[in-house]
Design a protein around this nucleic acid. Sequence first.
DNA 1: CATGAATGAGGCTTCATTCAT
DNA 2: GATGAATGAAGCCTCATTCAT
Lengths: 213, 213, 213, 213
Amino acid sequence: MTSTKKFSRRSETRPDEVLDAAMAVFSEKGFAAAKVEDIARRAGVSKGTVYLYFASKDAIIEAIIERAVAPVASGALPRIAAYEGDPRQPIAMLLRTIGTLLSDPEKLAIPKLFLREGMNIPAIADIYRRDVLDRAIPVLVGLVARGVAAGHFRPVDPELTVRSIVGPIIAHVALSEVFGIRPADGLALDRLIDNHLEILFNGLAARPPEPGP
Amino acid sequence: MTSTKKFSRRSETRPDEVLDAAMAVFSEKGFAAAKVEDIARRAGVSKGTVYLYFASKDAIIEAIIERAVAPVASGALPRIAAYEGDPRQPIAMLLRTIGTLLSDPEKLAIPKLFLREGMNIPAIADIYRRDVLDRAIPVLVGLVARGVAAGHFRPVDPELTVRSIVGPIIAHVALSEVFGIRPADGLALDRLIDNHLEILFNGLAARPPEPGP
Amino acid sequence: MTSTKKFSRRSETRPDEVLDAAMAVFSEKGFAAAKVEDIARRAGVSKGTVYLYFASKDAIIEAIIERAVAPVASGALPRIAAYEGDPRQPIAMLLRTIGTLLSDPEKLAIPKLFLREGMNIPAIADIYRRDVLDRAIPVLVGLVARGVAAGHFRPVDPELTVRSIVGPIIAHVALSEVFGIRPADGLALDRLIDNHLEILFNGLAARPPEPGP
Amino acid sequence: MTSTKKFSRRSETRPDEVLDAAMAVFSEKGFAAAKVEDIARRAGVSKGTVYLYFASKDAIIEAIIERAVAPVASGALPRIAAYEGDPRQPIAMLLRTIGTLLSDPEKLAIPKLFLREGMNIPAIADIYRRDVLDRAIPVLVGLVARGVAAGHFRPVDPELTVRSIVGPIIAHVALSEVFGIRPADGLALDRLIDNHLEILFNGLAARPPEPGP
DNA sequence: CATGAATGAGGCTTCATTCAT
DNA sequence: GATGAATGAAGCCTCATTCAT
């Protein structure tokens, strides 16, 4: 009997509940096709209540992003940025962490939503870039650059190499989530990362593969 | 004496002109935000004429896709599929071909549109998968598998390795086109592919980097 | 059988028909309370058609005003402005013209609407001021000023005297239309103007009322 | 020991505070555009409290009117009604009193609101008519009628002449407040009344301006 | 008494689609 | 074939009012 009543009153958690509902609805139907009423119904409130907390439909998706993006800054990034020594370890750690994260469908839904809507709504792409990419990419670039400088890596272009580090994961998720193309045994993100890291680290290794006679 | 008007009827090319216009408009504003009127104006015809050739807005984007996707099957793919010997060459060729293609903004617009709208409209993703991915991926998988079998490559998983081959390009384009993140000197797709191929081929090379004593 | 059909097609007169309908609805219910649907129904078209011609509800009332106000410029005003000689005649003529105009309920509805909505919607007041008052008032002020200079009138303040010229008519209409207060025998605008002119012209007459013994 | 709070409850004056706030908000934005929340915030109470004292938004404006209109009956009116002798003096007094009143923006706001909303809400016009006009107009009519009967005034129509007495003031305020048209040196209501009275009294004077030969 | 979270009917506006010409 | 005026369903948002606390 939690709430058959017309007026309940739970202001503290409401905004978050609305965001949860919105996340679910946006993931299912996409931003454009999602009706504010759907979100309200899903959150168990009225349309008016949604507008009590968010000024517009646009504001809802921005709030979702802000909320999802906040933890990124304080996550593993600082530790990776400060890492000294062979960069292979933090890179492997980062990719495996991402792999674990994306294996949770609920977590996976977030970047999927970003990508999906970011392509149509520049404001969303901007937020994601500002709050995630502009933080994460320089860390990775620095890591690679130091790896090169310290002789761990071949003399690759750090900026472009970052695309080689994360690209396969993006491709894998895109194939799976957008086009429904998966390996026979499911998403297999762990196996992808293993396979990718082996190629990547061998490919980056300082020693040329053929030392010659 | 076909017509007294300045421009005679050209009903044979009309549908294509409409598709060109639609492509341009969809690329600029996205499918949802594009109005049929925009497309008509761009094509220099009336709204009614658009509906003369296409049953609905959805039908327009599907026609764009069909038209764009048709040449893929008859392109370089068959030659690559039939290739014998070290797979490095066809892989490099393929990536460089893709690189050249995507450097033309007009060509780039096509996969961008697919990705953008495929995420929201499953029917589009289906067409793209059926007509492009289901043809191209098996060819690449076969190439890698044969490379492994012939001892050119380390014993990698062919299916997953395909993600490592194309992923960096996808990442590069996504960063550039969705988030506006580009290397200092422009898109630099050629440089990316060079950098990527060096890592990739070294990473795939059969000889382990460190033979040990 | 003028039009039981769903699609009729009479583009040339449509905008005016919509304005007529809007005028009627606004007069009845006021701008705020009038629904676009009311206007559409009254005009015998669909809501969509209204938006075909007018970008918004606001645009409708502005169009009404523009249309009503257009004839003013080209009306009696230029002739009055150019008048030479005793200004009593053009003033009397002007007031009697106004009196005749306002006796037609349909014409009366226009300034009523302006006043009514101008009080709440500054944009409307602005248009009315710009297009009507800023043209008419200077003409009247000039007339009075010349009357004073030529010795026809006592040395009154022309600007303020304009209020004395038109004020009684405004008061009469306001009492009648806003508050339902009318002389026993109806609106009697003609009688009001006669009575007003007698007082006004005697009041303005150059010769002091009491020439002395 | 009425309260530990900084401000003790003052329920006796609360309704009046709400009405003051409402008056201010209505004057600024008009009745329709004023939100109950605005009124509450201005009054320093919650929306719920407003509804504690007033059943609806309509009830608020009616209460404002009742409160504003009450003092009118007991004002200068009885004295004027009882006045004997040349009516010029009480008329001048009345107009000057009105002039002083309307120079106070806060006082001016009241008739402005009446006019503004009376045009849209008949109930408001009715109240104003019943409580103000139906009392004031007969007094003025009587004054003029007696002036005519006693030979002070020319044989004008008393009812219509009342429009000539108050009209210029109405016109002046309307031009100023609705359309922003003011004499160069501000509202100048005093000067208007002087100018008006001179014309009016000369116009009403019994002796015809030109006795003729 | 007082609060302010919650409601939901109702309005304006958009735009894919239809069809008379 | 071609046009573009007309349609109307559907969605976003506002805000007066209610009521649990």
